[in-house]
Write a protein that binds this DNA or RNA. Structure first.
Length: 752
DNA sequence: CGCACGTGGTTTTTT
DNA sequence: ACCACGTGCG
């Protein structure tokens, strides 16, 4: 066994010899490392065993990215290259961080304590808690989630007397977060027009308000941490001396601020090990900058990019389709997936007349798959936008198939949970006006809008927080203050779950929901269950965390809004957006709504590299499938209450025909195009429906899919036909001018 | 205070 | 079509 491992290592050009330091520890762990490395392919081994230098690992879908990342850490530690203390591993989601810890625990005989493994936000929070004074924050600073941030912005705008019609709070929020993600404070933003200047003023006021109230939003966690490191040499040097190895997952998703944060921590001596896939960059819309990959190569003098191109997930045809599609993108770092598996099945394509029929087809296929023994949990229905799930759900319910929709409201975002947490937050930090406003009159205790306004005026006049103003008020307001103070002293010595139990009762939340009757009864019962679940979450938290303080739990609640729900066990279909599917895999995948305007989405056209991002999204969707992939589309679909006709997605034409099996009659072959127009036929949705045998010409003489020419509008394709005789109208999608309804009595249409 | 009605928005979303 | 949110009335 040992011999075999040794032979393999010798045979590999990427063996331990890379590591020039022949430490005793290395030798001791030789056997262990052969185990660690066995089963890795050569590029994976090369990545895992790289010497102390910065590296970019281009890891394709299903190429063992997480495995390489965790094995790298295990390798560094077991060879004695670095102690756990010197490891910083960063992810984007809590799920990914947990996964990494779980895998490491199973690989290493030591526990992961000492390493910093977590999300960007989690780690920044940790750092700010450790240096709250230097970061100019109260010890018990609270974290605003996006909802909290939005209400805080609305409050600022109200105080500034700003018309929320002219300045839409949501947009201001994007502006503020967007700026911070670029590393910009209000006075760093260059504003050349009055509108932007006003937004900058709101930005500045908002930050001032957050500072007064002792709260930070998500991007503030990062920015504040970045500023702490850049301004405080002692702290910066401390962490630079500590984290010899910095490892980043999903590097293509980093925003400019996150990249600067990483650079600062890496300093000039530490190794940044970045794993990512430019072809799976699908979060540009929220500030991710794929360009960071090229910058990394330059800034860190990365000499060799290691590519992980062997895919262990999908059959050949699926990969071939993905490769063909993504090859249409520009400026790729370059990478082509391959597999040792055979070609497998062709991709199945289905064209439905309507979205409802598309859903019905999917249901019947699922029933077929089910009868073949495929578990429902191994099947995913993917769509570009959430609105599409509705029709699918309807059909699934009728067919009695169980399913789970991902991406709904999460646990800590539920109203009743937010209320309960708000009580706890005010107890922790009375300056948190956001939290105070949420609960001062919930459950209702006779403190109306008028009283609250008065409080706000008093607070503003005396330059204090609402709680201080409330403490000086009388009547019901002072009763409220008394309640908070009493809660705080009554729970001072209690363990976390008991603190929460006390607050749930004393606040009147339990009583409030218990008293609901009539139409709201059911809803209230569910809310009570969730409050009970909050107690369970607290109990679990105490078990799992060393620091089981209330502050720590509240951070946890903000940073980890809670995995979607329990119920992972039951065998149910997965319904989700393509975005949400990243990182997952299924035996069978349905990519639904393959229509121009939907996927690629219409709005992507106005954005730089919008089509490229949509194509990457499609690439992600395709590569989720292990064995079987369906692509379905509908000629007409109900959207925003209106039935729309659409052409098939231009992406369909980017898939090699020989990989496709058309269940419905297939589209006209590529030769039917005249590529005289734009390089991508998206703007001028190209006419390419073959005459489907099933749909004969109707009384009007025109049939759907017919290629036509109009004297004025040029070439197009018939999307639908309506009415007869003098009333007959046809809807035509023209290459150049979009779709139009034409009355057949007047329009001069010629068949092509 | 709570309900009824009106309005705006509806690509993707983690922290 | 549908949902979330805000305002105004009883």
């Amino acid at each position: 066994m040992k011999q075999k491992g040794e032979a393999r290592l010798r045979a590999s050009p990427f063996c331990l010899v890379h590591n020039n330091v022949r430490t005793q520890a290395l030798w001791d762990n030789y056997a262990m490392n052969t185990t660690l490395l066995s089963g890795l392919n050569p590029p994976q081994q090369q990545a895992v065993t790289l010497p102390h230098q910065s590296a970019l690992i281009l890891a394709g879908a299903g190429s063992g990215k997480t495995r390489v990342l965790t094995t790298r850490i295990a390798y560094l530690i077991s060879t004695g290259t670095v102690s756990p203390h010197g490891i910083l591993a960063v992810t984007f989601t809590n799920k990914a961080a947990k996964e990494m810890i779980t895998r490491l625990t199973s690989m290493l005989p030591i526990n992961t304590r000492g390493m910093w493994i977590g999300t960007f936000h989690g780690l920044c929070n940790r750092m700010l808690r450790a240096h709250f004074r230097e970061a100019n924050l109260p010890q018990t600073f609270q974290i605003l989630d996006s909802g909290d941030q939005l209400s805080a912005i609305k409050r600022v705008m109200k105080a500034m007397n700003i018309d929320d019609k002219k300045f839409i709070p949501r947009e201001v929020q994007n502006f503020i977060s967007g700026s911070k993600e670029q590393g910009l404070r209000a006075n760093d933003v260059e504003a050349y027009d009055p509108y932007t200047r006003r937004k900058v003023e709101i930005f500045a006021e908002y930050d001032a308000q957050c500072q007064r109230e002792g709260v930070v939003d998500f991007s503030e966690l990062l920015l504040r941490s970045y500023e702490l490191l850049s301004r405080n040499a002692a702290i910066r040097e401390h962490y630079q001396a500590r984290f010899k190895h910095i490892l980043v997952d999903e590097f293509q998703d980093t925003n400019p601020l996150q990249y600067r944060w990483l650079k600062l921590l890496a300093g000039k001596d530490n190794a940044l090990f970045a794993v990512g896939d430019d072809d799976q960059s699908i979060y540009a819309f929220r500030g991710a900058n794929v360009g960071n990959m090229q910058e990394l190569l330059r800034d860190f003098h990365v000499e060799n990019v290691i590519k992980l191109e062997q895919n262990y997930r999908s059959h050949g045809n699926i990969l071939d389709a993905a490769n063909a599609l993504i090859s249409n993108n520009q400026n790729r770092l370059g990478k082509e997936l391959w597999t040792a598996e055979s070609g497998g099945e062709p991709l199945r394509v289905y064209e439905a007349p309507t979205d409802v029929e598309e859903a019905n087809f999917i249901v019947s296929e699922i029933q077929q798959l089910k009868s073949e023994g495929i578990n429902l949990r191994e099947i995913a229905l993917l769509y570009r936008s959430n609105a599409q799930s509705r029709v699918l759900e309807h059909s699934l319910v009728s067919a009695g198939l169980s399913y789970r929709v991902y991406g709904g409201l999460r646990f800590f975002e539920r109203q009743e949970i937010k209320h309960a947490l708000a009580y706890l937050r005010v107890m922790e930090n009375t300056d948190d006006d956001n939290a105070l406003l949420r609960i001062i009159n919930f459950p209702t205790r006779g403190i109306g809008a008028r009283s609250i306004e008065q409080l706000q005026e008093v607070a503003k006049m005396n330059n204090t927080t609402l709680f201080d103003a409330a403490a000086r008020a009388g009547g019901k307001v002072s009763a409220f203050v008394g309640m908070i103070v009493a809660m705080r002293s009554a729970t001072r010595e209690l363990p976390l779950p008991e603190i929460i139990g006390h607050v749930l009762n004393e606040s009147g939340l339990i009583a409030h929901y218990s008293n609901e009757t009539g139409a709201k009864k059911r809803e209230a019962e569910e809310r009570l269950e969730n409050l009970n679940e909050l107690l369970n979450a607290a109990t679990l938290f105490v078990h799992e965390n060393e620091d089981d303080s209330l502050t720590s739990f509240l951070s946890h609640a903000s940073l980890e809004a809670g995995e979607h729900q329990a119920g992972d066990q039951d065998d149910a279909l997965h319904l989700m957006t393509v975005h949400a599917s990243k990182g997952l895999e299924f035996h069978s995948v349905f990519i639904t709504g393959m229509e121009e305007g939907l996927f690629p989405h219409q709005n992507s056209q106005h954005m730089e590299d919008g089509l490229g991002e949509e194509r990457r999204l499609m690439y992600v969707a395709i590569t989720r499938a292990r064995r079987r992939l369906y692509l379905t589309f509908a000629q007409s679909r109900m959207l925003h209450g209106q039935t729309n006709s659409a052409m098939v997605s231009s992406f369909m034409r980017e898939l090699p025909e020989e990989l496709l099996h058309w269940i419905t009659p297939r589209l006209a072959p590529r030769s039917a195009f005249k590529p005289a127009y734009a390089p991508y036929p998206t703007q001028h949705a190209v006419a390419d429906y073959a005459a489907p045998a099933k749909r004969p010409a109707d009384m009007s003489g025109w049939r759907i899919g017919q290629n036509v020419e109009h004297a004025k509008f040029g070439e197009g394709v018939v999307l639908s036909v309506e009415g007869n005789g003098a009333d007959a109208r046809v809807q035509v999608q023209f290459r150049k001018t979009g779709s139009k309804w034409l009355s057949l009595e007047y329009a001069k249409l010629t068949a092509l």
